[in-house]
Simulated scan of single mutants.
Amino acid sequence: MTIRVLAAGDHFVQNRLFIDAIRREVPGDVEIRELTLPWPVVPFGRVGEVDEASDVEDELIEALRGVEVCVTQMAPLTKRVLDACPELKLFCVSRGGPVNANLDAASEAGVAVTFAPGRNAVATAEHTLAMLLAATRRIPQTHADLAGGVWRGDYYTYDNVGPELEGATAGLIGYGAIGRRVARMLEGFGAEVLVYDPYVEISGQVELAELLERSRFLSLHARATPETIGMIGAPQIAAMPAGSVIVNCARGSLLDYDALCDALDSGHLFGAAMDVFPEEPIPAGSRLLTTPNLVMTPHLAGASKETAMNAATIVAGDVARYVRKEPLKHWANPAALIS
């Protein structure tokens, strides 16, 4: 029996990666259609009732006609799409979380949704460390000055130089696949690593208040949940030692960015490095664009060739399990009853 699959890739997790992985992993006869989404050339946004998706409902509905399985990164699985595509049974999101899928509506429609946890753990951990070093050693600012023909000897003054990692205390909020890798890297630099994560059990974990009071470096790795929104605000930043550095390569909702800017303006923070923001793209006129000693990248921490290949391979594995009628490995809505 032929399984009809739609590869709805984009310019990062490309269709050729999905197709190669499916051909490699999936047994039997597979017919694969293609739809290329515009991300990241066109930013994602809210589509219908789902977040962080490409606005392609009409094109997706047309491409899904007669299709049983969809593999994608940014396609919107909305109630409108589900109502229009009754033959769809499996929707595989090649991301760490299926935020672009309406899980309740998918469950009611009998559509299983899977995702790809850990796909970008190595890339994000490496980017986190690069951002921490860039902020601490003023790398973007000094490069910009030199590129502009200015040799700034004052960067060598005591008040303008940053702390070393060796012998320093670094605090991690969140200790999943990314946090664990960042911890190993920091320990390799000779830092003492403190961890706060109420969702994991590890020896030596400390309370958040202690972590903040002791940490010269703070890196955020928690998931965005109702409990973590704004968890680092003005009181938490004020509790950190003067001259500290904060890095956020997780989610913009974890941090109060106005409080961050205040602490950078006052000099309480030596520096900060952000890959995620409360609004993306950053709007014109935002304080973030003029606050000193702030290093920024446009939500690129998880971007590597290996991440894209991992994403395709992980979802292809669940497509293969579906075809073999085995339990799905990364099932986001096990309440869905697949007929």
Rank of each mutant, 00 (worst) to 15 (best):
D58T: 14
E49H: 09
R80G: 04
T78Q: 08
R80C: 00
V50S: 07
G45E: 12
S54A: 06
E59S: 10
C92Y: 05
M74Q: 13
Q73N: 15
L90E: 12
V56I: 01
D58P: 06
R65L: 10
P86H: 04
E49M: 01
C92K: 09
A84G: 03
T78Y: 04
V42T: 15
A63F: 08
E52N: 11
A84L: 03
A75M: 01
A75G: 02
G45S: 14
E57K: 06
E52H: 11
L60P: 04
E57A: 09
L77T: 05
E62P: 00
P86Q: 10
K89P: 12
L88I: 14
I61C: 03
L82V: 15
V47T: 03
T72F: 10
L77Q: 07
V50C: 08
C70Q: 08
L64E: 07
C70A: 14
P76K: 12
V47Q: 07
E59Q: 08
C85I: 14
C85R: 13
G66S: 05
R80F: 00
L60T: 04
A75D: 02
L60E: 09
T78F: 02
C92M: 03
P76D: 13
E57N: 02
V50K: 09
R80W: 06
L90V: 00
E87C: 12
E59V: 01
D51I: 11
P43I: 10
E49N: 09
R80E: 13
E52R: 08
T72A: 10
F44D: 14
P76R: 12
F44C: 13
L82N: 02
E57Y: 06
M74A: 10
L88F: 11
L64W: 08
E68P: 11
M74V: 05
E49T: 10
V42P: 06
L77K: 07
D51F: 15
L60A: 01
E68H: 15
D55I: 00
D51G: 13
A84I: 05
C85M: 12
A63S: 12
E59K: 03
D55N: 13
V69G: 05
P43H: 01
F91A: 02
S54G: 02
L64H: 10
A63D: 06
V81P: 03
D58I: 03
G45T: 11
V71L: 03
F44A: 11
I61P: 08
S54F: 01
E49Q: 14
G66K: 11
L82E: 03
C92F: 05
V47F: 03
L64G: 06
R65N: 12
M74C: 14
F91Y: 14
R46T: 11
E59G: 02
A75C: 02
V50D: 11
V71I: 03
V47E: 08
T72Q: 12
D58S: 15
E49R: 10
E87G: 13
L90A: 02
L77F: 00
E52G: 00
C70T: 05
E87N: 14
T72M: 11
R46V: 04
D51W: 13
L64V: 12
E68I: 14
V50E: 09
V69W: 10
A84C: 02
L82R: 01
C70D: 06
